[in-house]
Amino acid sequence: MDRSTAAIDVRGLNHWFGTGEARKQALFDIDLSIERGRLTVLLGASGSGKTTLLTLMGCLREVQDGSVRLLGQELAGAREELLVACRRRLGFIFQAHNLHDSLTAMQNVRMGLGVHGSAAADWREPCEHLLRLVGLGERLDYLPGNLSGGQKQRVAVARALVGNPEVVFADEPTAALDRDSGLQVVRMLKALGEARGTTTLMVTHDPRILDLADRIVTLEDGRLVGEGR
């Protein structure tokens, strides 16, 4: 695959945690290219390095050794301003929903749009549309404390998608959802890929989702060990 056309391209990536004798290598010489518009699932046991890889590709951690190109930008040695600008082109779905407990569902989703400087008049329609899409049309003004775990996660999904991200990083996004809701969210991510070319990189253990993945990448002890589909 051409490095310049890939959504994410990783070459010779190594990463360590700690210092001195406590220093431990988490990733070993990773080479990986993620195509645009595809749903890629990252598999691996706990501690295999998949979350570290996700945070490095998502501009949330500093690249120590090797190269990570995200949407054509080299992240190794990049300044904070560039990292912030890159993050604004991404969507994050966390295992814990991380919703702001003082904000309603609409306001939480609006935060995903506000980072792009949308005017007040511009935010209501897309936020409401996405919340209706994830089945929360009747819960727009609910605070997270009044929503179930699954509903909160769907708000988090709407927040990640409302800014039309080019890449979505998702860490166990369906863990808190029932079977139907989980499938609905993943199908939505996949449909976005097809319609808008959104790339999705997802860490999951959910076997139902593996069937929908375009590509499955497996990590073991910080090394890429397998690839499927």
């Binding site: 991404l90 991380n98 702001h100 935060m111 995903g112 980072v115």
Partner: peptide, 15 residues
Amino acid sequence: DHLREYATFKAIGYR
């Protein structure tokens, strides 16, 4: 109390 929320906002690009 809101560190996680602020960290989330940082992740999505807030300064």
